[in-house]
Amino acid sequence: MADAALDALYQEIILDHYRRPRNFRPLDGATCTADGKNPNCGDALTVWLKLDGDRVSDVTFQGVGCAISKASASLMTEAIKGKTRAEAVALFEQVRALVTGEAGTPARKDLGQLRALAGVSRFPMRVKCASLAWHAMKSAMDGAAGGGAAPSAGRVTPP
């Protein structure tokens, strides 16, 4: 049982994004950015966003982290590119429900590859890892909502 849960946690998609993270670089011309830190394990990553009006026209990240936090960040960059702010935040809510195994939230088909994060729900101690980049993304957007031309910066430590 334990091994099946472990295989579900570290399924191929997750390991692939961990080994070859997508959009893993700073972003020239980013309009907002935020750091995510998990002091417990030393994980630290930065998320950069380029907002075109209300739409995420590009998103990247960089940092050190475990397989779960890196893969989740990598999958996130692919999932939210082209989405509006509201859509990106709604996706975060769905991912949060998915990784915490919240009752009554079957993995929705439209989550696409993000469904690979479902295995996290069996490992409550790893929920923080899976949500780190998402918190940073949201914090970057919240900072950007304040307006201003200069890239806004935030820092989050997930609860």
């Binding site: 472990l6 982290g65 790893r126």
Partner: peptide
């Protein structure tokens, strides 16, 4: 190649 938290979980 492995993060300590992943090792501990495994």
């Amino acid at each position: 190649d492995a993060h300590p938290h992943d090792v501990a979980t495994a």
